[in-house]
Simulated scan of single mutants.
Amino acid sequence: MATMRAARLNVRTNTLEVKEVPRPVPGRGQVLVRVKAAGVCLSDVHLIDGTLRPLYLEGDEVTLGHEVAGVVEELGPEVADTEVGERVALQAGQIDHHGRVLTRGVDYDGGWAEYALADEETLVPLPDDLPFEQAAIIPDAVSTPWAAVTTTGDVGPAEAVAVWGVGGLGAHAVKLLRLVGAAPIIAADPDPQARQRALDFGADAALDSTAPDFLTRIGELTDGHGLAVAFDFAGVPVVREQALQVLGEHGRLVLVGLTDKPLEVKDGTRFSYLKQQILGHYGSEPEHVIQLVQLVRAGRLDFSTSISGTFPLEEAPAAVEQLEKRVGSPVRLVLQP
């Protein structure tokens, strides 16, 4: 029986171990992908520490990794439009025969391994000049903020926006807001490295969200009109309180960062009078990943500065620790099996 190396999480004991496992065999409509790159996400950290739990995982173990790119190695029966050797990224999830939305690397085995199984319909062809480590992070690290900006937030040209939390997703939100013509783009983060990154990624201003004059500065930057859209990528109650104070008329607060803490609207009369909205956001749809690859192909987007470091598969625990402790304020760390 053929084997491979994989980083397996035991969700019962919350232990991550790189070990030898059987190499999967593609079934009907599936392909086997040789993994070339797989992103390390805060969701992976939360799975390991137990604050995030799989909904539909069968058994106690799963191979992590929902941001995956590689080369098609083997075709299963009834695969119609894919060839061996094709460069692909994998959508971060799929719908099963029960109609449930399953997440790769959470509810079923992901890409922190030498090989990964994928349904043919979840493959996204890649241009030859897009490096695998950049392609791997498009599902989720880029597609989640892209969906938040274009669909949930529905940001239009010259709309004033602010992004709280300029980590892996928030940094890309800044870049994508620049692409759709938002102005001004204000980044908010207490970390000076994150603020500098925001400026590098296209923000017009980068503010310390803990500064005493923070809200006043947003008022000045928006000429007193307030924000059209505020994006919370931090998932922190104080961020949401700040955002609600500086939303303008018809302003939208888009909640991307996850938290189980309650949200309070302290001035409900003002909120209603200004016809403001609070919008929840999670993940992205398959078309968002396809759009982003097309934009890269057209030369509109470049993610070369998004890769903060690469690790061999055996060092997956070290990559997780670096992200968890924010050593070097990384955007995205990538495993290369």
Results as ranks from 00 to 15, higher is better:
L179F: 03
R178E: 12
V79F: 07
F132G: 01
P26E: 05
P262E: 11
V331I: 15
L255G: 07
P190E: 05
F231L: 05
S308V: 07
G85S: 12
D208C: 12
V101E: 06
G27I: 10
T210P: 03
A205G: 02
P139R: 06
H281F: 04
P184F: 05
V174Y: 01
A69N: 04
M4E: 09
A182Y: 01
L221D: 01
C41S: 13
D60L: 09
E74Q: 14
T82I: 13
A188P: 01
T122F: 02
A211R: 10
R195I: 09
F271P: 03
A198D: 02
L199Q: 05
Y273T: 13
D107P: 02
L274A: 14
Q196E: 13
V71I: 15
D128W: 06
H46G: 05
A135E: 01
E114M: 08
H46R: 15
V25I: 14
E120T: 08
E285I: 11
A173V: 06
A162T: 04
R23S: 12
L207C: 08
G59D: 08
A230N: 06
V166G: 00
V25Y: 02
D260Y: 09
P22M: 11
A203L: 04
F303V: 03
V289M: 08
P77W: 08
D154E: 10
G168A: 10
G248Y: 05
G39Y: 04
